[in-house]
Design a protein around this nucleic acid. Structure first.
Lengths: 168, 168
DNA sequence: TCCAAACCCTTGGATGTCCTAGTATATTGC
DNA sequence: GCAATATACTAGGACATCCAAGGGTTTGGA
């Protein structure tokens, strides 16, 4: 977006917090703000990698999820739950993926309320290729030290559990 | 959004990656996905706290930034650089904050291209109140262990530096 | 001096997310 | 068996983010 700043703006914010007498919450504020910014950076990287495939991260996540489903199909509400996004976001993603010919909607055999999303052959191919590039270009060059990756998984996993994402 | 899942969907994804022979990138994939999800959770918490003030996180960040500026005013491009967002996002936020009477645009005294954003008296008051609630309700109850907060600041700070956010 | 290049902000368009409501189908309870 | 409640998906609206383009202002080199 722009040239690197001469100073870390989040560290500056943390100092500002401390100077105002909010030392007790300055560090968590900095950590949370850093998570926000890191997500933004990672998302931009991922989207730039997926752009040639005509995918966004939201659509890729859905494709990837379907590719791991035994039957290659999932009910919309299941996808919504597993991806932890609002049902309308799934509707949106499926609309676009369907128009691109990567997934297809089909009625649930026994529950008339439910719609199944199924990968098409092309969808499976695109998912595979996109994953390969993502693995080599993003996940394989995450910029995180291996030990730090473990720390992140542990810390954020604990946070997500406490936030009510899962119970396991 | 929904009830807690019986299993951690990100841990499942990591297992799926490993089973497909992508063990070398399974952990970074899980860590990155966890960052995405954590950001989503935190953003939702913050936005729900800010809603009564008529603010979103993007607008709050701009208000907070202005409240720490010596003169209480900043050029748009400076705000864009410090918040690390696209200039059009700042335009958008300023439009809404200005309509709400919390900031005011004024021409730069010497550079005709530049627009200064300035906090109004009400903007300063709202920023102060919103910060107080955010400190007590979010940052003060982040759900992160203090030691983990330090880890996050270190790990993500290093990542952001490597990503080109800052050089200091 | 003067025009091209650089810089600043805004407009318009595409996407994603959530919320609220509305329609259709299932399930439950009387 | 039928009405009330719950569940599943979709439509429309509000926001935020980014990109591409356009119009105005400054700067800098020929």
């Amino acid at each position: 977006m722009g040239a690197p700043l001469p100073r870390d703006p989040i560290a500056d914010a943390q100092r500002n917090w401390e100077e105002r007498g909010w030392s007790d919450v300055a560090a968590p504020m900095a950590a949370i703000t850093a998570i926000m910014r890191t997500q933004q950076i990672l998302l931009a990287r991922i989207e730039s990698i997926l752009k040639p495939f005509g995918l966004t991260f939201a659509r890729y996540e859905l494709l990837a999820l379907l590719s791991f489903a035994r039957s290659g199909a999932l009910p919309m509400n299941k996808a919504s739950a597993l991806l932890q996004v609002h049902p309308t976001s799934v509707t949106n993603a499926v609309d676009r993926l369907e128009r691109a010919g990567l997934v297809a909607r089909s009625p649930h055999p026994t529950d008339g309320r439910t719609t199944l999303i199924e990968l098409t052959a092309e969808g499976r191919t695109v998912a595979k290729r996109a994953t390969a590039v993502l693995n080599s270009e993003v996940f394989g060059q995450s910029g995180f030290d291996p030990a730090d990756v473990d720390q992140l998984i542990r810390i954020l996993g604990s946070f997500r559990r406490n936030a009510g994402d899962f119970t396991g």
